[in-house]
Structure formats: C-alpha cells, structure tokens
C-alpha cells in the first residue's frame, strides 16, 4: 500500500541523500560511522532470506539497501577516512547490540536462525540511529544534508505505522507483526525530538542547530 511504498522510497532517498552529501562535500563529517555499521548489520541479519525473496519489489530494495550501505561504509572507512572523527562518535554500541540480542533471544516468533536474526535486526534498527543522534547532540549542529538524511530515515519507519494500521483494517488475513510494530513505534519515538527541531528550523530554511 501507499504508506509502505512511500516509506521504502523515503528510506532509499535517505541513503541517496547521504551518498550525495559524502560525495558532494567529499567529507563524512557529522555522520556517525557506528550508526552506519549498525545499519549494515541490520540489513545483513534481516535479509538472510534474500535468495528466496518472493516479491521482486522486495528483492530489488534488499539488494539496493545492502549494496548502498556497503558503499557508504567503504567511503567512510577508506575513501574519506581522514574526515572521520572517531572522538565524536563515542556512543557505546555494545548496549544497543545487547538490547537487540536479548530481545531477539527472549521473544522471537520462532527459535530458528532466520527468525532470531530477523528479530535481532528489527530491534537493532529501532536503536541504530542513537549513535548518530548522540553525535548530533555533541556537535550541536549539522549540515542541512545531514539533517535531511536523518529526517528521511526517520520518516521511513514512521510511514510504516499507518501502513500497519491500513493493513490491519484492510487485510482480513493480516496478522499484526507485534515485534515490527513495537520496535517501529519505539524507533519513531526516538526521532521525535529531532523531528521537532528539524520541522521548526530546517523548514524555515535555517541552519540545523540544537537549542
């Protein structure tokens, strides 16, 4: 449905905004490398079922997300490594990995490799933006492109919420994916303060600065 398609394209747009920023400005300053690595982990653990993906739409997006994320990590770790400042990217990702790992082991739908990794990926994605938001907090401001990147990334999962509501009411056979919905709501909440600042500042064409 439209919400999900808009969400997936918003996700894709966020990746291209980020790629554009890094290549245009020849710098990955202001971008959290840790968050990008977490997203890489999210895609790998979620798309283990890539080979037998039924819908071509999903297949294409999965390939796009994995390949573009690999390229972003290459750019940040190799091509533009000098512009990477690890002293600003100091969030303890082990807490996030522990959080996702624990929930994946406690409440998977089924104790199979695929399902446990899938649950891990969903929970990890819900908190993967924290290093990036933490870095933003520390620097106190961000380039407009970085703000647009985070906004598009936040919008993607936010749009999945109406998608789930729509599916709940329109597809009688649809069972609510409680893990995805819970994590999706948590993820969107984590973006809420960013969205507020983004809306009040950037929409007025001002530079993105924390109050």
């Amino acid at each position: 449905n439209i919400f999900r398609v808009l969400g997936d394209f918003s996700h894709l747009a966020s990746i291209f905004i980020l790629l554009h920023k890094i290549q245009q400005l020849k710098s990955c300053s202001g971008i959290s490398f840790k968050s990008q690595v977490l997203y890489m982990l999210v895609y790998i653990t979620r798309y283990l079922d890539l080979p037998w993906t039924s819908s071509p739409y999903n297949f294409i997006f999965k390939v796009l997300f994995i390949s573009s994320e690999l390229y972003i990590i290459y750019l940040m770790a190799r091509a533009y490594k000098p512009t990477n400042d690890p002293n600003l990217d100091t969030f303890h990702v082990e807490f996030l990995l522990g959080f996702a790992g624990l929930l994946a082991l406690l409440f998977p739908y089924k104790y199979t490799i695929l399902e446990v990794f899938w649950a891990f990926s969903i929970w990890l994605e819900s908190v993967a933006i924290l290093p990036q938001l933490f870095m933003l907090q520390r620097t106190g401001e961000a380039e407009a492109m970085t703000a647009h990147y985070i906004a598009a990334l936040g919008m993607y999962r936010a749009l999945y919420i109406p998608n789930w509501i729509y599916r709940y009411f329109s597809e009688p056979t649809h069972k609510v994916d409680t893990i995805a919905v819970t994590a999706g709501i948590l993820q969107t909440i984590l973006y809420s303060d960013f969205f507020w600042i983004y809306y009040t500042k950037v929409m007025r064409g001002e530079k993105f600065k924390l109050p």
């Binding site: 999903n58 997006f61 999965k62 997300f65 739908y109 999945y160 998608n163 069972k175 994916d177 995805a180």
Partner: peptide, 10 residues
C-alpha cells in the same frame, strides 16, 4: 498465532 511464514515487509 503470530505471523511467521517469512516476513513480507522490508
């Protein structure tokens, strides 16, 4: 029963 047969969302 939770939806399990493969996840149809990204």
């Amino acid at each position: 029963k939770e939806k399990v047969q493969g996840h149809d969302e990204l």
